[in-house]
C-alpha cells in the first residue's frame, strides 16, 4: 500500500476513503448528538397494567421463558380473606376441600392458610405459578379483584420487545421506568 505515486488509484482511494470516513464520523457524531437528546439514563422494564388485563391466558404461553416470568401476585390489603375464595375454588366444587380437583389453579400454586374463623389467607407459590390468570379471573369476576398478574423482574430477561406484549389482546403490557417497575393494585383501586 505504501510508496504509490500521487495520482495512482491507491492514493486516490485513500483520499476518498479519508473523505468518506470524515463524513461518516461527522454523521455518526451528529446522530449521536440528536440521539443524546432522545436518550435517558433510565432504562425501562415491561409491566402489565392490571386495570387493562383481561386474563386471556397468553401470559402463560407467550413468554419467551420456559416458565413465564408473569406470576399472580396478591394485594393482601384488598383481599376479603373469604373462606370460599372464587380465585381458589372451581366455580362448582364437589366439596369445600382443598383437593386438587376443586382448585382453579392448574398447578396448585395457591396456598390456603387458616387465619381465624372464617378467614383464610391465600398466598402464591411463584415456583409453581405459570401466570395462567385463571385465579385472577375468578377473583376479579366474583371477588375483590385482589389477585392480579405482574411480570416478575427477578425472572424476566427484559426482552427488547416483550413477546407477550405483542400478543396481548388488551394491549395491557408496556414499558415502565426501571424505577417503578411494578403496577400494583392497591386498596380502593
Amino acid at each position: 500500500m505504501n510508496g504509490h505515486p500521487a495520482g495512482s488509484p491507491c492514493s486516490r482511494r485513500q483520499f476518498l476513503r479519508g473523505g468518506a470516513r470524515l463524513l461518516a464520523v461527522t454523521g455518526v457524531g451528529g446522530l449521536a448528538g440528536v440521539l443524546a437528546t432522545r436518550a435517558s439514563a433510565q432504562t425501562t422494564r415491561w409491566q402489565i397494567d392490571p386495570a387493562k388485563c383481561v386474563r386471556c391466558g397468553n401470559c402463560a404461553t407467550k413468554c419467551v421463558l420456559k416458565q413465564s416470568a408473569v406470576k399472580c401476585v396478591h394485594a393482601f390489603a384488598m383481599c376479603g380473606y373469604c373462606q370460599l375464595c372464587t380465585g381458589y375454588f372451581e366455580p362448582e366444587p364437589n366439596a369445600l376441600t382443598t383437593a386438587a380437583e376443586n382448585q382453579l389453579c392448574p398447578t396448585n400454586a395457591i396456598k390456603r392458610t387458616y387465619i381465624e374463623d372464617p378467614y383464610y389467607e391465600y398466598t402464591i407459590d411463584e415456583e409453581l405459578c405459570i401466570g395462567c390468570a385463571k385465579c385472577v379471573e375468578g377473583c376479579s369476576r366474583f371477588g375483590n379483584g385482589s389477585l392480579f398478574l405482574q411480570i416478575r423482574h427477578d425472572r424476566c430477561v427484559n426482552c427488547n420487545e416483550c413477546a407477550i406484549a405483542r400478543n396481548c389482546p388488551a394491549d395491557a403490557i408496556s414499558r415502565t421506568p426501571v424505577g417503578h417497575p411494578y403496577r400494583l393494585k392497591t386498596e380502593g383501586h
Binding site: 439514563a41 390489603a77 376479603g80 381465624e116 389467607e121 375483590n144 427477578d154 417497575p181 400494583l184 380502593g188
Partner: peptide
C-alpha cells in the same frame, strides 16, 4: 366492583403479608 367482601379486621391481630416486588437488575 372491588371490595365486594370488605377486608376483615382480624381479632387475633393477624399481620397482612406484603406483596413482594422483586427488584429488576440494578441500573
Amino acid at each position: 366492583a372491588a371490595s365486594r367482601f370488605p377486608p376483615p379486621d382480624f381479632e387475633g391481630g393477624h399481620q397482612l403479608p406484603v406483596t413482594t416486588t422483586p427488584a429488576p437488575r440494578e441500573l
